[in-house]
Design a protein around this nucleic acid. Sequence first.
DNA 1: ACCTGAACACCGTTCAAGT
DNA 2: ACCTGAACACCGTTCAAGT
Lengths: 228, 228
Amino acid sequence: MATKGQRGERRAGALSKERIVEAAIEILDAEGGGALTFRALTARLETGSGAIYWHVANKDELLAAATGEIIDRAMAEAVGGAEPREAIRTIALGIFDAIDAHPWVGAQLPREPWQAAMMRIFEGIGGRLQALGVPERARFDCASALVNYILGVAGQNAANARVFAGEVDRTAYLTAIAERWAQHDPAQFPFVRQVAAQLGEHDDREQFLAGIDLILAGIAAVSRPDDK
Amino acid sequence: MATKGQRGERRAGALSKERIVEAAIEILDAEGGGALTFRALTARLETGSGAIYWHVANKDELLAAATGEIIDRAMAEAVGGAEPREAIRTIALGIFDAIDAHPWVGAQLPREPWQAAMMRIFEGIGGRLQALGVPERARFDCASALVNYILGVAGQNAANARVFAGEVDRTAYLTAIAERWAQHDPAQFPFVRQVAAQLGEHDDREQFLAGIDLILAGIAAVSRPDDK
DNA sequence: ACCTGAACACCGTTCAAGT
DNA sequence: ACCTGAACACCGTTCAAGT
């Protein structure tokens, strides 16, 4: 939440890691992943680069902190003591939406194997698998499958945002994708061409959730004790 | 000098996109993702930077071409007219092994949504789903789930290679991971701590395949007509 | 057509110096 | 302790000039 004590005074406030991370998130959100430089940061915070390095070790740590902040918020909203299967879907959707709102997170998340952000997701999902009744031996594999799937979608979404940075319109975006797909040789890419026709009625979020459900169905099939 | 007509002469041969890509792959393999610079390339190829720009538009295109080359090789080895389920596993494993051998590909692949490399994987998997008997409506979602999972693992493996660049030993590598996991607060991360104990008997490749099988099981459950 | 390599604009990071 | 900002080493890319 907000800083304790005096609030509101932003300009005169002392520099802190939180203020730096907050400024970094603002820059990343407004201008995209490539726009975060120490020069842009010093301009926005009205300091020198050395001041930032006093609070933050380097750019990687700054990026990790910014990513952690976004994921933390998303996970906090997805707490709900709901039924475990639904809880997993909620967590996954929360992360999807967070990355949709902050595409640069999608590029950063896969780069943080054991950073706090990744572990929070892993923990959140793994805990629900336990509640779901997945046998202990299979839990690691199942959590890993779900997390890796989420990370893959995250990376793709970030790449899409990078490529189609201009298009704000959703249909224009889908049209652009369909055009790219149509560019491929039909003889060599029959499936791609065939699927391109379905792009009109396609919804990224729904497809993401369909993938989660697919994996959950697989988990259910595998962890059913009467199975084989 | 007098090697004009000779085909196989490599050193004296003229510059070409293929030779540049080949040199880029050698640098990336030998020194990692961060080591590919135009200066390193010019040194290895004994030219000026302008010569490289004559054959290649920019660094992104070079990286995409290098990634495409590795994926093409992996896909070519995974052709086999086997049973579709087995073919999908073979393709997935082929990509896993390619990324294991060239970790920088794992970082690059998620950045190429509609580049040739990505589409080849998507096509290869989608085609087998058709052969598997997955109904047309579900095929897009199923292919997307498998591909996104593969991309997620790719990104994680690349990140691991970056973080543990020093450790060659497999047990040292696993020990290092277990240490990272143990650093987290046990009260806040019970699942992570619990799973850390399983890390000793853990095999990345097997876990990757377990995830593929999980998704395939989900696909089977969803596309069974008598279901529901 | 193809290649050379100096030059440009920009970057992350450091550090002596200030308060 | 915290901040300043010039300086350093390095980067991708361009381009006038060569062959």
